[in-house]
Design a protein around this nucleic acid. Structure first.
Lengths: 124, 124
DNA sequence: TTGTACAGGGAAAAAATTGTCACTATGATA
DNA sequence: TATCATAGTGACAATTTTTTCCCTGTACAA
C-alpha cells in the first residue's frame, strides 16, 4: 500500500470532503451505485474508460471511508454487491448539486474546456 | 505545456464540473478569493502548504476556465488581483454545500480518514 | 549596499494517481 | 475440452500532478 510522503492537511470541511471524493472515478461510482448498479462488473461496464483495477481501488476506499458497504455472496462465480450506506446517502444532494451546476452550464463549460485543451495541443 | 495522452471524457455535468474543479487547491483558491484574498501573495499565505508554482498554475487554469478574472496593475513592484467572475460566483453555492457537508460530518470523517491513513502506514 | 516583497516562468525531479498485464479459482456453457 | 464470466491481487509501467530550485526585474527599507 502506498505511503503518503506529503502529509494531508485537513483543516476545514472542504478538505475533508476532498479527501473522500478526490479520485477520478469516485463520484461517478457513488452515482451509479445509487442508480442501482451494484456489482463491480456492472460498474465497470458503466465506466469503461476506467481500468478494472482502479475501480476496485476506489471502491475499497469508498468502503473504508464508510460511504458504501459491500456484501460478498459466497457463490461461485463470486458475486459482490455494493450499496450506499446511510452516510453515503447524505452525499447525494451534494453530488446532485454538482451535477446540476455542470448541466446548467454545459455549453459554456464545453467551450472553455475545449479552448484550454486546444491551447495545450497547439503549443506542442 | 502538457499534452494529454489519455483523453478526457466529458459526458455529463459531473464530468464537466470535475474538469474545472479537479485540482488540489482550486476549490480553496475560489473560496479565499471570494473571501477577499485576491493577490497571489495573500493566497499563498492562506495556503502555505501549496507551492507558489502550483498556485499560479491553478489560478491560470481557473482564469482560462472563466471562473476568475485577473487584473494586472502596471505598478512596481507588480500587483495582481484576482476576483470571481459572474460565472465563478455561480459555483459558490456548490462549494458552500460541499463545505457544509464536510463540516457536518467532520468528526466522523476524521475518524474514517484517520483509520485508512494509519492502515497505510502500518502496512509498510 | 544588501535584503526584501512582488509576480512569474523554465527545467527537472518527486510524488501521487491511474493503467496494463498476468495470474488465482470455480462453475456454467458451447 | 476450451472458453467465458466472476472478483480480486501483485508487480510494474505510464501518466498526470505537484514540488523544488533557480532565474528575471524593480522599488523600497534598513
Amino acid at each position: 500500500m502506498r505511503v503518503r510522503k506529503i502529509p494531508l492537511n485537513l483543516n476545514c470541511g472542504l478538505d475533508l470532503v476532498a479527501e473522500v471524493l478526490y479520485g477520478k472515478w469516485k463520484i461517478r461510482l457513488l452515482w451509479f451505485i445509487r442508480e442501482g448498479f451494484q456489482r463491480p462488473s456492472e460498474l465497470q461496464r458503466k465506466i469503461p474508460e476506467a481500468s478494472r483495477r482502479v475501480l476496485h481501488l476506489q471502491l475499497n476506499e469508498l468502503e473504508a471511508h464508510g460511504l458504501v458497504s459491500k456484501v460478498i455472496y459466497p457463490e461461485v462465480p463470486p458475486r459482490v454487491e455494493y450499496s450506499l450506506t446511510e452516510f453515503g446517502q447524505t452525499l447525494i444532494p451534494v453530488i446532485t448539486l454538482l451535477g446540476q451546476w455542470g448541466d446548467e452550464h454545459e455549453e459554456r463549460l464545453r467551450e472553455v474546456i475545449g479552448e484550454s485543451e486546444s491551447e495545450k495541443t497547439h503549443l506542442l
